[in-house]
């Protein structure tokens, strides 16, 4: 299963070897907390993205476990120390097990 909403990612395309770069990510999701009641008074079931992972050339280097306090359309920024050229893979997973991925290339001069 895939999460249909398109994530957005900001990664520098190039970096110097040893440079620490900032990566910013954003994905649309209501992050339904399980605390809210609908118009009929029924509790809306919890449904959040609970895991975000960033990997470089297949190797995970940063993971965030999100709980219900994380805002809708979760934003995450973090850092990476560039050593070699390669590709980032970013993965979001929700409560239902659905997944969304995004990739970005990095060239190290």
């Amino acid at each position: 299963m895939a999460l249909k909403s398109q994530p957005r990612v900001r990664v520098p395309a190039q970096a110097k070897a040893g440079e620490i770069i900032e990566i910013k990510t954003l994905i649309s999701h209501e992050m339904e907390s399980g605390q809210r009641k609908d118009a009929a008074g029924k509790t809306v079931p919890r449904d959040i993205i609970n895991n975000f992972q960033a990997a470089f050339n297949g190797k995970p280097f940063f993971t965030a476990e999100w709980f219900t306090s994380i805002s809708a359309n979760p934003y995450q920024s973090f850092f990476f120390k560039a050593k070699e050229s390669g590709e980032f893979t970013f993965t979001w997973k929700d409560d239902g097990g659905a997944e969304q991925k995004a990739t970005a290339k990095l060239t190290v001069a």
């Binding site: 770069i21 965030a64 995450q76 920024s77 973090f78 850092f79």
Partner: peptide, 12 residues
């Protein structure tokens, strides 16, 4: 590999 233990997000 993170290079820096720093992260930002937004919360309720």
């Amino acid at each position: 590999e993170s290079g820096k233990a720093s992260a930002s997000t937004r919360m309720r």
